[in-house]
């Protein structure tokens, strides 16, 4: 056997290893979701969705958690979307390269790497205690907004950077001001990418548990919140709570709630991926 032959065998072998590794991740995912599906599917019905929490697993439902999740989704979007997009625009279009922008850049990259539970500690002190919002929806949503801000900023910047400079020059060349150029040309051209980032960020917020636990979101909230200052729970916290209980009935509930939570996140991610692809195809500069 010559070396060339051995090398070819090795080459083929690694190709197989790579394929197996790739499939392994996906198969594990399928298996785990399959298990959850098997466990929780039968539990999902209208009663489960409409019922308030209860000490008896078969009577307990996710109504308050679902309402809390919707509230959180709504409020977090309101806070983080304008802030994140504005910051992205500022960093990409207004700042000249300087020490200050270097600092801002390191800062955003660092914030993206701060563990979510640390944001919880920040929210607990600043929103919960100093602004006296306690464990309200508002405190939770503000905390999550800061958490997802870096995601929106980074994707906004990437999307803006993808807009060819010739478009900018064409607009300036016609006498458009900076903001007119941004508003009329750059934002429409990068909207697909920005929206993708926003959806991914919000989907992250919907799945977060730890920071809300620290801020003090409660596992047992008997009524759906009716204002941003009310106490609340969300799906992930409800799931966490059910997992921690010994009775088998609650882990079935947890599985059912997980199925709903996964459906929400997968739909949001699916939309984001779809938007990204469509946007990439449409703007093939």
């Amino acid at each position: 056997m010559n070396r060339g032959y051995i090398n070819r065998i090795k080459d083929k072998a690694f190709g197989l290893v790579g394929l197996i590794a790739t499939l392994f991740g996906l198969l594990i995912l399928t298996f785990l979701i399959g298990q959850v599906f098997y466990e929780g599917y039968n539990r999902i019905d209208l009663d489960f969705i409409k019922s308030l929490p209860s000490r008896k697993p078969e009577k307990a439902g996710i109504y308050t958690a679902l309402a809390g999740t919707v509230w959180i989704l709504f409020l977090t979007t309101i806070f983080s979307l304008p802030l994140g997009i504005s910051t992205g625009i500022y960093l990409e279009e207004y700042t000249k390269k300087s020490r200050f922008t270097d600092l801002l850049e390191i800062n955003v990259s660092n914030l993206a790497g701060v563990p979510s539970i640390i944001y919880g500690l920040l929210g607990l002190e600043v929103f919960g205690r100093m602004l006296n919002l306690g464990n309200s929806l508002l405190a939770g949503a503000l905390t999550l907004s800061l958490l997802v801000l870096p995601i929106i900023i980074v994707t906004t910047r990437e999307a803006i950077r993808a807009v060819p400079n010739s478009l900018r020059m064409a607009s300036y060349g016609l006498g458009a001001s900076k903001w007119q150029t941004i508003w009329e040309q750059i934002l429409p051209a990068s909207m697909g990418g920005i929206l993708t980032g926003v959806i991914l960020a919000i989907s992250r917020a919907v799945g977060e548990t730890a920071p809300l636990l620290v801020v003090g979101a409660l596992a047992y909230v008997p009524f759906a919140p009716s204002s941003p200052l009310d106490e609340f729970t969300v799906l992930p916290i409800q799931i966490f709570n059910w997992i921690s209980r010994p009775q088998h009935g609650f882990s079935v509930n947890a599985a059912a709630a997980i199925l709903l939570l996964l459906t929400i996140t997968f739909i949001m991610n699916g939309v984001a991926v779809y938007l990204r692809n469509r946007w990439q195809k449409k703007h093939n500069w």
Partner: peptide
Amino acid sequence: VKPLLEMLASIPTVVYGFFALMI
């Protein structure tokens, strides 16, 4: 495969916790 793998990353961690403890 790439978007599917990214889906792995989008699963809420509380769900992974359930996987670990229950499965």
